[in-house]
Write a protein that binds this DNA or RNA. Structure first.
Length: 571
DNA sequence: GCCGTTTTCGGCCCGACTGTTTTCAGTCG
């Protein structure tokens, strides 16, 4: 059973206990355990086998027993009994903003509402507003939220959110008086998907800035607008919040709204033990009641005796303990990337010529660019035959003589066939500067087959890099069934680098697997898989994933210089 | 249900908003 499935069930248990009116701290315990499981860098099954569950934060004796039962039998008695106490569709009511456990139970008890559809019918029949603590406005809000929920496609990939932020930021920078405009929340932490956008800033004339914000051409609807904050909806149903404070409180504000929620809770619990109370306004000494403000996040962390913690790792694992000991690593940065090793051109399915791609890479300050068009095999994406590949190599050689200050490397993204063999003969692969292998077909194989297939490809000594290891496409295609732990172990054994594909629709490896890879000493490489010159800038999303995996520059292959990288490939 | 520089028992993050109330419960981030 996968970590995500176990986490989902624990979260479900938390919801049901909440509906039941159980002790809120018990509910929180299950939520906390669910969170831990979801962010675990290793498979829960492995922890169960090795009897190491107790080491997971928030997992004690009782939850250990439950997880063990769940993983070993695929079934949890406690959960089944709990579910049987409630009508099936009721937890879906909790997904509607504004409806929490109390309201959900009220609706079920008083009106026999068992699903979102029931609720809509009850609203249409005018039966809801008469309930205690319900009124016209509440009902209208619920009705609107149900509609919005149907319309909105939940979280969006970070790449899309980023474009919205850049557009809005460009407009807002024209507003006089506004300073320090910064996106916070999951966007700043570089999570792969984003629920809504939080923008932070400072100004002396906050209300004017807010007015300019709500008046932007992108704004479709203004949800709320006050003196320090506003919430709007832009195209696509995406919510954007802006908060403005005075300059001297910006550090605390940014810290608070960057989150994550779990990081902030851990931070506040710790502050509490120190006799301090933490909020978005600053740090209050509980004894004296005196509020201390912070203009920068660094100062805010320092006051708590902590080293600065980069946003990407503020996820509630052990980052606070590490900051206490002063052992937060220096995470890899975009400026340290010296080349891109997975790029397509118009020789296969890319849009740019080799030269255009090379010029774009040069403009980014790269030392090298690895061309890796598709192989011909199954006819995908206008793949190159052996002959065409040789022609391309000649072309690259010619261009290298013409273009200064960047070296074009001649590689290939070779298809891994269903049986794990490669699409081009070894003699051809040997001629290349480097070789990437990737799965593009027969994605429905079962886990043992897929895992064996990928490992077989990695065992070929000509393969340097395994590209987008799980083949997932965010919101479009699930990851293939593959035993990632086995793949990571094989990568360590064979010395194959694993790609962090920076294309916003892929982001594959994921952050937790990057974390695990680093633990195992597996070399990683951050590539964009660019199909046009403008895609090269996607590198920042891949760097974001690497940072979320606590990676430093030494963990990332393409932070190496041209000389080093050529020596590394050793051809 | 978890956990320990006060604790193996008694705690468990903080503030704001909304709508319904005449002081606050419920929900959210």
């Amino acid at each position: 059973m996968k970590n995500a499935e176990v986490a989902k069930i624990l979260q479900d248990i938390a919801d049901l206990l909440e509906l039941k009116g159980e002790n809120v701290f018990k509910v929180r315990a299950y939520q906390k355990a669910a969170f831990s499981l979801e962010h675990l860098p290793v498979e829960v099954e492995q922890l169960v086998r090795e009897d190491r569950l107790k080491g997971v934060p928030g997992v004690g004796e009782a939850i250990t027993k439950k997880i063990t039962e769940l993983v070993t039998t695929g079934h949890l008695q406690y959960y089944e009994e709990l579910k049987a106490e409630f009508p099936e569709g009721i937890s879906a009511l909790l997904d509607i903003p504004g409806i929490g456990p109390k309201t959900a139970m009220l609706l079920t008890h008083e009106l026999d509402i068992k699903s979102v559809e029931d609720l809509e019918a009850a609203i249409a029949g005018d039966r809801v507003a008469s309930l205690p603590r319900m009124g016209e406005k509440t009902v209208e809000n619920i009705r609107r939220h149900i509609q919005a929920l149907r319309r909105k496609d939940q979280r969006i990939p970070i790449g899309e959110a980023w474009m919205v932020v850049e557009e809005i930021s460009a407009e807002m920078r024209k507003v006089t008086g506004l300073r320090n405009l910064t996106p916070a929340g999951s966007l700043r932490r570089f999570r792969e998907t984003i629920g809504d956008i939080d923008l932070m800033g400072t100004a002396d004339n906050a209300s004017e800035v807010i007015r300019a914000f709500t008046g932007l051409p992108q704004v479709k609807e203004v949800l709320a607008s006050g003196t320090t904050k506003a919430s709007v909806v832009v195209a696509g149903g995406l919510q954007v919040d802006l908060r403005i404070v005075e300059h001297d409180s910006f550090g605390s504000l940014l810290q608070h709204f960057t989150g994550s929620k779990q990081h902030n809770i851990n931070l506040r619990e710790r502050a509490q033990r120190m006799g301090l109370s933490l909020s978005e306004y600053g740090i209050t000494d509980v004894k004296t009641g005196k509020l201390e403000k912070f203009a920068t996040e660094e100062a805010c962390y320092r006051r708590q005796g902590l080293e600065y913690i980069p946003p990407e790792i503020r996820e509630g694992s052990d980052e606070i303990e590490r900051a206490e000991r002063g052992t937060i690593p220096k995470l890899v940065e975009v400026s340290e990337i010296k080349g891109d090793l997975h790029v397509h051109t118009d020789w296969s399915d890319g849009r740019g010529s080799i030269e255009a791609m090379a010029q774009a890479a040069k403009a980014l300050g790269y030392q090298y660019l690895g061309i890796s068009d598709h192989s011909a095999g199954r006819g995908i994406a206008r793949g190159l035959s052996v002959e065409r590949l040789r022609e391309q190599r000649a072309e690259i050689q010619k261009l290298n003589e013409q273009i200064a200050d960047i070296r074009i490397l001649s590689g290939m993204e070779v298809d891994i066939r269903a049986d794990g063999s490669l699409d081009l003969p070894d003699e051809m692969l040997k001629e290349l500067d480097f070789v990437i292998a990737a799965v593009h077909s027969a994605m429905n194989q079962d886990e043992p087959q897929m895992t064996g297939r990928i490992i077989r490809a990695m065992e070929n000594p000509n393969v340097d890099i395994l590209a987008h290891p799980t083949c997932r496409l965010l919101k479009e295609r699930e990851a293939v069934s593959v035993d990632m732990e086995a793949v990571l172990q094989a990568a360590a054994r064979t010395g194959t680098a694993l790609e962090i594909n920076a294309m916003p629709s892929r982001l594959d490896l994921r952050d937790v697997h990057a974390y695990r890879a680093r633990e195992l000493g597996v070399r990683l490489v951050i590539n964009t898989d660019a199909h046009g010159p403008e895609h090269l800038s996607f590198i920042r999303f891949g760097v974001g994933v690497a940072r979320r995996g606590w990676c430093q520059s030494r963990d990332i292959l393409n932070t190496r210089s041209l000389t080093e990288i050529i020596a590394y490939f050793g051809r």
